[in-house]
Design a protein around this nucleic acid. Structure first.
Lengths: 347, 347
DNA sequence: CTGAAAGCGCTTACAG
DNA sequence: CTGAAAGCGCTTACAG
């Protein structure tokens, strides 16, 4: 049977068998050529690899994982995609992971609640690793991961579940810096715009902000509830400011997108001036924060370092799925002063 | 051997064998219960499915695809992620595909050029279908898809390659509408801000705009080269306007993100007023277009319909991979008038 | 260092 | 309608 006839019969792919026959070697030998740590003559490996390239053979990953129990698939679970911080993280993570030969299977959760089903299907593909972006897991879902012995990395937002990995910014420190920045510049009536109430990022940023204010003898920051990490939520929080007896002069928002929604509403609907009447600080430094239309003062999220830490973790877990769970907390980047804050000491 | 001991030995998963033994049936029968079109007694199927649910059995998709040659994987290739139009498309596509039981394997191409390698790896996983978002394929890559008989759908941006599927907006019609809108309101010196020069979306929008202007006896629109679909590119195009002898009074931008970059630069760096000195129209109606900070007049991209068409196509191709290639062109949504355009007839 | 054989978890003709 | 057997494309002890 000619090679072409064979390929016709078995679908369109070249298999080990084809390659072995072509080279006059056994299937075992051919297979070994593709495993760096396999015992095989140097010269044999070279011949196999060369010929494989010529006829376009590449091992079928499904057949391989059936035996090795490793799939080189990482499941990426994404929810809150309206935050412009995530698209970049997603794509960069995907290409960085590809660089260490891991493939990303994407799971999108439009509404919270659907994550569970999606995750279950994902788990079917036996990912070597699951990375959760911008979401948390229900404890049922977390348990399924544990049961299938799939390590989970929470990126940015941490989870209460024990036994999982985490990579996050030191959000509390970020909150403290925001407080210092405002207080140093003469702000005295602080407010925090709170996003998703129990997201770790939200809680920690608030805590750092409030604690630092207390340490410096400033009245506790008022909390304006936005409710989620979105533009619309920031908008709503500004409306809520109407009901306050005393207007805050320094506002720290849970993140940039919330800050931008807040800004737009404060200026447009409340008719106030920023930074004239009040200063606003965000968190993340997403690209649009530097656009002149927003020019938002904000704290940079150390994305590069977070990404690097995540990939390093993925690599470790690739070698040893049973590694000890660890939370990596990375210092926030600098506070970037733009045009939504000003010095009030002369007021 | 107890079930638990067996699960210990074979990793952590329950297999057909386990379930068959548990039920006192053959492996074949159990397998048949999971295929709607298999010949099996109604009652048997019910029993199998019920017990499967109890002990958490679900067929291993890898083992299955080894035989069926269908993976239920769709490869999603994404490039230009800075356009906020895409994150939404990506996640919605992912969940819609999940609804028809297809899983998304993500490939990110940061730079053009890397798509080829990424695609090759993807093809290894034998996706039933590849969807290309915001990118084109090199002809080498396109040929690899053909060779492996993997259907390709181009979403939004079309490709010159024959034999592939396409879902796009009727961009030419969109361009015509932009021209009519501006001309009807007294604009006479038109300009087009061109993004990626040979992207089909860019070419078609420009063509429709220019053709309609010609039909209505208006001088051919000046072309301002932005060079890509990004904020920074729009910014550059505004700078390029400095060298023009006559300033345009009506500008149609290749898409919203380019328009926003253009707007910011026109106002900030050129010190011009929009819509006072000139009107600006975008294309897409991304979420931020309605933020008061931009309030961009734009043409809505019919995302819902495009998504629906893509999923329908995916379904068809799932049933019959050899379906006749087709390009679906969907009428653009309405032109939404906001605050970057005004009526100049009284000027 | 290489090859023959068993087996990963499934599906699907083929008998009965 | 059900079961035994072959086989999908690989990897990996086990001999030699």
């Amino acid at each position: 049977m000619t090679m072409d006839a064979r390929r016709e019969r078995t679908g369109t792919r070249v298999t080990v068998k084809d390659l072995a026959r072509d080279l006059g070697m056994s299937v075992s030998t051919v297979s070994r050529a593709f495993h760096a740590d396999a015992v095989i003559a140097r010269e044999t490996r070279v011949r196999v690899l060369a010929r494989a390239k010529e006829i376009g053979y590449t091992p079928n990953p499904f057949a391989r994982s059936l035996i090795t129990k490793r799939t080189r698939i990482v499941g990426l679970v994404v929810a809150d995609i309206t935050n412009p911080f995530y698209p970049e993280v997603m794509t960069r993570l995907t290409s960085d992971l590809r660089a260490i030969d891991m493939n990303v299977m994407l799971v999108a959760a439009d509404q919270s609640g659907t994550v569970d089903d999606a995750l279950r299907l994902l788990l079917n593909y036996q990912p070597d690793l699951v990375i959760i972006l911008a979401a948390t897991l229900s404890s049922a879902a977390a348990q399924e991961c544990r049961k299938s012995e799939t390590p989970v990395i929470f990126f940015n937002r941490l989870s209460g579940e024990a036994g999982s990995f985490g990579v996050t910014c030191d959000n509390e420190e970020g909150g403290r810096r925001a407080a210092d920045f405002l207080i140093d510049r003469g702000h005295r009536r602080l407010a925090y715009v709170s996003a998703l109430a129990d997201a770790s990022t939200n809680v920690e940023r608030h805590r750092g902000f409030a604690n630092r204010a207390a340490e410096r003898g400033i009245e506790a920051p008022v909390v304006l509830e936005a409710g989620s990490f979105s533009y619309a939520a920031g908008h709503r929080a500004a409306e809520a400011m109407r009901t306050l007896k005393a207007r805050p002069d320094g506002v720290f928002c849970a993140n940039d997108i919330v800050a931008i929604g807040f800004l737009d509403a404060v200026r447009q609907d409340l008719g106030l001036s920023v930074p004239g009447d009040l200063s606003v600080i965000g968190f993340d430094d997403v690209e649009m924060a530097h656009w002149p239309s927003h020019a938002l003062t904000t704290i940079r999220q150390p994305v590069d370092e977070m990404l690097a830490a995540t990939v390093a973790l993925a690599k470790t877990l690739g070698a040893d799925a049973g590694a000890e769970p660890v939370i990596r907390r990375i210092a926030p980047g600098e506070l970037i002063e733009r045009q939504t804050t000003r010095d009030r000491r002369a007021d």
